[in-house]
Nucleic acid binder design. Structure first.
Lengths: 185, 185
DNA sequence: ACACTAACAGAATCGTGATTCTTTTTGTGG
DNA sequence: CCACAAAAAGAATCACGATTCTGTTAGTGT
């Protein structure tokens, strides 16, 4: 068939990436074989290699997908005109954690310690997330103190930092504590 | 040679485990081959297999080693008769973080999401650590308030929880931010 | 509707790396 | 000091899994 239309091509890519995320969540980044992903996605090896250069490329796509989805949730609160306070903010973020994605997220951290490409992705996403948290907290400070917002950003920084830390710790907790579905040997 | 004396046998085991930790910190759990560890330890493959059943066994030993060392630092403060406050406690813990071990620690988290044996080790260690933090904070509360210590443990729990979270977040930060020495290809 | 070319399936390849096997060496108990 | 069995070295094996190759099929642009 001729070159797929862009939309359809993107569809295939996410179909593969999502299957990969499910596999990774079940068996981990390295223990997931291309064969596992073909089984999970319903596509063949040849097809996967038509859309991703190699496995590393696919892992990167999966990492972006998972991290982006987490950032997305946060983005909504940041844009909100009724900014929640730090406790409420954290509670909502924690409530939005999906166990399977938490596992892949933590696996991504581990991979990031040695793979430069993954590290860049993780650092970029965490920086972006921290910035959004900072915006949220700043907006909340301004609203709560309903006075001149001088220095609000400065006071928001340490609070955002704590919320981020508590969120990451909770992500780890969920990744380790949530039941992991058994995989047929 | 006949069965080695226990002390000497233990020496060999730690010699191997420490070499493994260095390799893991450099290349990650899965990308480290037995050949890498033989090169780093100066021992041969056959020798390694005389001391560890297989690679998984060695990874577990490495995980225990790294996590235990972190718990050890904390144990000293817990036993101290001049318990530091939460901020000081956290600062000292963070100062004691070694980048290479932080990397292996985070890799261990990732592995724990899918490997039950590693998960047990990590959960056991974090629970132990949390308990020690709790003891520290309780002791500090009692000392600071120098009054009847009723309910100090209850009030200590959330504080210990936060210190733990901030510590873990800092560990992640260090693992991702610290320069990773290049490995000759 | 057609033709064409890229997507797809699935088998074949090829390297890597864990584990095992054989031989040599060397601590240890007597 | 001796003898011996276990430990160490290093080569050989063996399986698994990423990638590539060979047809086959089916979207897309005209």
């Amino acid at each position: 068939m001729p070159r797929l239309t862009d939309a359809r091509k993107e569809l295939r890519r996410t179909q593969i990436a999502e299957a990969a995320v499910r596999c990774f969540g079940r068996n981990g980044l390295e223990r997931t074989s291309i064969a596992d992903i073909t089984a999970e996605s319903g596509l063949s090896a040849g097809s996967i290699y038509a859309h991703y250069r190699n496995k590393a490329d696919l892992v990167q796509a999966a990492a972006r997908e998972v991290l982006a989805k987490r950032a997305e949730v946060l983005g909504e609160y940041a844009a909100s005109d009724t900014p929640p306070g730090p406790d409420e903010l954290l509670a909502r973020l924690v409530a939005a954690i999906d166990p399977a994605e938490a596992r892949v997220g933590v696996q991504t951290w581990g991979e990031a310690t040695t793979d430069p490409a993954i590290r860049d992705i993780v650092l970029d996403m965490t920086d972006r997330m921290r910035a959004m948290l900072h915006d949220c907290v700043t907006a909340w400070l301004v609203k709560v103190e309903h006075q001149e917002p001088a220095g609000a950003p400065e006071r928001a920084a340490p609070i955002a930092h704590r919320v981020m830390a508590l969120y990451q710790a909770q992500l780890l907790y969920t990744a380790l504590r949530s039941p992991t579905e058994e995989t047929a040997p």
